[in-house]
Write a protein that binds this DNA or RNA. Structure first.
Lengths: 265, 265
DNA sequence: CCATCTTTGTGCACGCGTTCACAAAGACAT
DNA sequence: ATGTCTTTGTGAACGCGTGCACAAAGATGG
């Protein structure tokens, strides 16, 4: 999963495990699809397959919400859609502000998935005066000076940060000071927030790096090297460009200057 | 098999826990920042603070890589940058293809974080003939027909999917068939892939829904504390738009059609 | 009403990840 | 050298999440 949770002290909200909460949107999506096809009921097995999880896990997840299934039959699709929506708070209207209307911010503003589930983009905000008034996703971009006023007037409690990394903490501080208590951060920075404020992080570059790690492992599985069962699933490895030089400095301590091409964020 | 897994079961590649791998990019970013400021060494405490994690966790994470610290002093910044980069496979060049150059795809193509860490966008691909040849992020968009050829010629093993949900699985299948073994999926769908292929998912709407859940809890904390009554906790909630009708169907089973406004992805 | 069949809900065990707390290791001063 | 001080590296305990396996619940048919 592509999330990066930033410190949640095992909130264990009303007994619903965090891991379960993270899967509820997944179930909801699968159920919504079934609902559109007018499927009346679904078994845990079928729904689990659609959501890409284990059926036992799904049943346990639902058990935290209550006993909404019927043994021998399955779950009522419409009813479950409603229950999960309510549990996630999607029966409310959530006004959000989006700060930083660059390439990414504009793409997010145009993203249908936001508006479609009870989330309403209350305002697009950018610090660049040249952006002010420009129309993005059918909405006029407003200047960052008005951030506090916008949040207050619209009762916004969720903010999306899509600014450059350098501006993110500052924007975050202003959002929090203005009353925002949940932040979705796309900027590649670790945000500091006071207790009671939730931050979720989406970092594109980190996801790629994690993939690269596994990719490297798949490609260059060492010959003997305590390989568990199956050694390197495959041995294509024709794609290795750089030989990943110098394993021999494994015990060197001092920096020797041959730092590889790793760059700032 | 072939369920769209997002999590690695127990890959435990070479003894490095998945959770640790997911944090390495975080450490790397913090270290890179220190490196730019020419900071020679850093203690686990300082670095942990910069990365937003616990110092004990950081030390344990590093211990999986080896003993790269010096007791009483800390870690050599440059050396650690190199070690982590190597471990993550960032000392290699990773050509990637990006499929689906809509709003989001274009934004991703422009995102600097990709190119800056050993990832090279080998091609932008879109199924829309009208897009073919258009320049995005200084690169000509190529038609999906050439997908296999592009992957083969460039030795691409990592693909990014930013298509609409409906096209994602089909694109995924073609990517995998062409030899891609790692996929970063931005489409709101569960992808099915064969064993050996890694999929990571970034779902903007899911992240927001998780935030909404916590936000709802913060806002509507019930009076009598342990309101285990299973009845919806609906406290203050000045923002409630929809009355969340019919609480009385708590034991009703059949669908009654009053589905709330939850929409397709 | 009883038998059978399907599917849920969950007790339980296991493994991973996190955190604490401390001994060992090295730097540094004397 | 020796002592002190700092910081790492890690053993051990704990808690959470996952998956198995099965009893209970309800549907369905005779």
């Amino acid at each position: 999963m592509a999330t990066g949770r930033t410190h949640r002290p095992a909130t264990r909200s009303r007994g619903i495990p965090e891991a379960t909460v993270a899967r509820l949107p997944l179930y909801l999506r699968a159920l919504t699809a079934l609902s559109e096809r007018s499927v009346p009921t679904v078994s845990s097995e079928e729904l689990a397959a659609a959501a890409g999880v284990n059926s036992a896990k799904l049943r346990k997840d639902f058990s935290y919400l209550g006993s909404y299934g019927t043994r021998g039959v399955g779950y009522d699709v419409e009813y479950l859609v409603y229950q999960i929506s309510r549990e996630l708070g999607l029966t409310q209207d959530w006004p959000i502000v989006m700060v930083g209307i660059g390439n990414l911010g504009a793409a997010l503003a145009n993203y249908g998935g936001f508006a479609s589930r009870g989330f309403r983009v209350a305002a697009l905000i950018d610090a660049d005066p040249a952006m002010t008034g420009k129309s993005v996703a059918g909405m006029a971009v407003q200047h960052a000076d008005d951030l506090e006023k916008i949040i207050d007037e619209n009762g916004v409690s969720i903010g999306v940060i899509a600014t450059p990394a350098g501006a993110a903490q500052q924007v975050c501080d202003r959002l929090v000071a203005a009353g925002v208590t949940s932040i979705l951060n796309f900027a590649p920075t670790v945000l500091s927030v006071p207790d009671g404020v939730d931050v979720r992080k989406v970092d594109l570059s980190i996801e790629l790096q994690i993939l690269a790690f596994h990719e490297q492992r798949k490609a260059g599985e060492s010959p003997v090297d305590e390989a568990e069962g199956a050694v390197g699933v495959e041995g294509p490895a024709a794609k290795v460009t750089k030989p990943a030089a110098a394993k021999n400095n494994a015990d060197r301590k001092g920096p020797d200057g041959d730092v590889p091409a790793v760059m700032p964020a």
